[in-house]
Structures are given as structure tokens and as C-alpha cells.
Computed example of a mutant assay.
Amino acid sequence: MPARSRLFRVNLGAELRTLRERTKMSTRTVAARLGTSPAWVSRTETGARYPTPEEVGALCHLYGATSEMCDLLTAKAESNDGSVINLPSHDQFADQLANVMLLETEAWRVTEYELALVPGLLQTADYARQIFATVQRPQAEIERMVSTRLGRQPLLSRPKGPELRFLLDEFVLRRLIGGPAVMREQLRKIASEADRPSVHVRVIPAAAGAHAGLDGTFAVYEFAAVETYVYLEYRKGGIFLADPEDTRRYVDVRDALWESALDEQASVELVGSLAEGLADD
């Protein structure tokens, strides 16, 4: 079975379907209201056809969506090339990285909380290479993994891309990965990327002591209409949480950490000062 057929869609069509189902409307009712066919509605929701921004606006109006939600979905229709987002169904570990990348592409906001390492979207090649080399691997495999990781980073500058929020424990910045030169370059990259309007970095200072994020790292992916997803990564793989009761706990922790962390200006200043304080061996 092809990998993509094992995964279910959470793309724009799925979000439109969610809005329709909340109104208790059938595809036949929607078609009659818009002067189209039930097949048109169904194909739009399954991703067989990609709607125009005008069509999305009409559907949002029909479903009584908020103006904010309508703006988010219309922007997605304007910027998306029609590709779909997939998540694991039966095999939750299959195509793990591909699923993370697709989540990043389709979400309107992504928050990554890191307790130990710089998030992959912000890593330099040398920093990533050091991380992958901690496990015995052929050099060619390490280089392939580095290339794949860097291949995710155009998301940082994508027009109408998601809001990207990074919560970093201060010890992430102080852990000397690869030596002073590698770490200095890495810290400067974090500060540089934080200048982008869609990128927000906050640091939880060491002085904060015990906090709600000490249980481990996680990422939160938020969508306009469908439920929030949380990704938990561990040594042998990772899992996606979709149940609202489970994800709400992580969203609450995310919100608490975001409020208690240094503000963005102070965070970037700390990153910069740590970079300048690293002297070559």
C-alpha cells in the first residue's frame, strides 16, 4: 500500500467539511444553496478539486464562519498549490517526518517547545550534523538527514506561511553543541530568523526554576477549522495527539510558558549576548 494511502487528510477541504458538519447541512443542501452539485461539494472536501478563494469565501459565509476563520481559509486557498496534508492513521510511526512537514505547511500557527535542542526549523547545517552524528551512522546518511532538515526551512520565509512560535529553555542556548564556533553560528541564526515578521522566539530563563515544560518537548499545530494536533517526539519515534482533551493540556502548558518566558526582545538580546560570549578554543 502506498505510504500516502495509509494517511488521512487534514487539508483545506477537510476544514471546509468540518464547518459544514457543524451546521448539520448535507452536501445536497449546500449544493442547492450555491447553485452547484453535491459532487462539487464532495470533491472540494476530499481534495479532488481545489477551491478558489471566492468559493471558500462563499462556503464560509454559508456556514456562518467567523471573519477570522474565513480570512485564514481564504488565505490558504490563495497561497496553497493544492497539495494535501496527511497524518498517520493505522501506522502512527509511518512517514513521521513527512507528516510533520505537512502539518507545518498547512497549519496557521505552529508552536515548538524545546527543552534540550534547538528546533529543527532553526538549526544550522553544522549544528544538525553534530546532532545526527551522536548515533553511529554512515556519513552519507548523516548528510542526507542534514539536507532533509534544511529543506524544511523555507517555511520560515514563505509568503502567507504559518505563524511560527519557538519556546526555548535557556539551557538549549547554553548547551555547547559542536564547540564554540558551531554554537555561535547557531545562536546568531536564531537571532536572525527572529527578525522575520512570522517568527517569534521566547526563552524560558534558567532563573524560572521548575516549570510546567520540564516533562518534555512538544509541538502544537493549530488549524482554522479542524482540531489542534500535538506532536510528541522520543528516541524511537513519535506520536500525534488529536483528542481535544489530550491536546488541551499541551495548549495550556504552551500558553503558560509563553506568558512566563522572557518577551521577544529580551529573548533575542539574551541569544545575542550568549553568542558574543563564546570564544573559539
Rank of each mutant, 00 (worst) to 15 (best):
V41I: 15
V41T: 04
S42T: 10
S42W: 03
S42D: 04
S42E: 04
T44L: 14
E45H: 03
E45L: 04
T46N: 07
T46W: 04
G47D: 07
G47H: 06
A48C: 01
R49V: 15
R49Q: 15
R49P: 02
R49M: 15
Y50G: 05
Y50N: 10
P51G: 12
P51L: 10
P51F: 12
T52R: 15
T52W: 07
T52H: 12
P53W: 10
P53G: 14
E54P: 03
E54A: 14
E54H: 09
E54Q: 14
E54D: 15
E54F: 04
V56G: 04
V56Y: 04
V56K: 03
G57V: 13
G57L: 11
G57A: 11
G57M: 11
A58L: 13
A58I: 03
L59T: 05
C60W: 03
H61F: 02
H61S: 14
H61C: 03
L62Y: 03
L62H: 03
L62W: 03
L62R: 04
L62D: 03
L62G: 05
Y63M: 01
G64D: 05
G64H: 02
A65G: 01
A65V: 00
A65W: 00
T66I: 01
T66F: 01
T66W: 00
S67V: 15
E68I: 05
E68W: 01
E68L: 07
E68Q: 10
M69G: 03
M69L: 08
C70V: 04
C70W: 00
C70I: 01
C70M: 10
D71S: 15
L72M: 14
L72F: 05
T74G: 04
T74S: 06
T74R: 13
T74E: 12
T74P: 08
A75E: 11
A75Q: 09
K76P: 00
K76L: 05
A77K: 02
A77V: 04
E78V: 11
E78I: 08
E78F: 05
E78Q: 15
E78C: 12
S79A: 15
N80W: 00
N80T: 02
D81V: 02
D81Q: 09
G82L: 06
S83I: 09
S83E: 10
S83T: 15
V84F: 07
V84N: 10
I85L: 08
I85Y: 09
I85C: 13
N86I: 08
N86D: 06
N86V: 12
L87R: 09
L87F: 13
L87I: 14
L87V: 14
L87S: 01
P88T: 12
P88R: 13
P88H: 13
P88E: 14
P88F: 10
S89R: 06
H90I: 08
D91I: 10
D91W: 12
D91T: 11
Q92F: 10
F93V: 12
A94V: 09
A94F: 01
A94T: 05
D95L: 06
D95M: 07
D95E: 14
D95V: 06
L97H: 08
L97R: 11
L97A: 10
A98S: 07
A98W: 00
A98R: 07
N99T: 14
V100C: 09
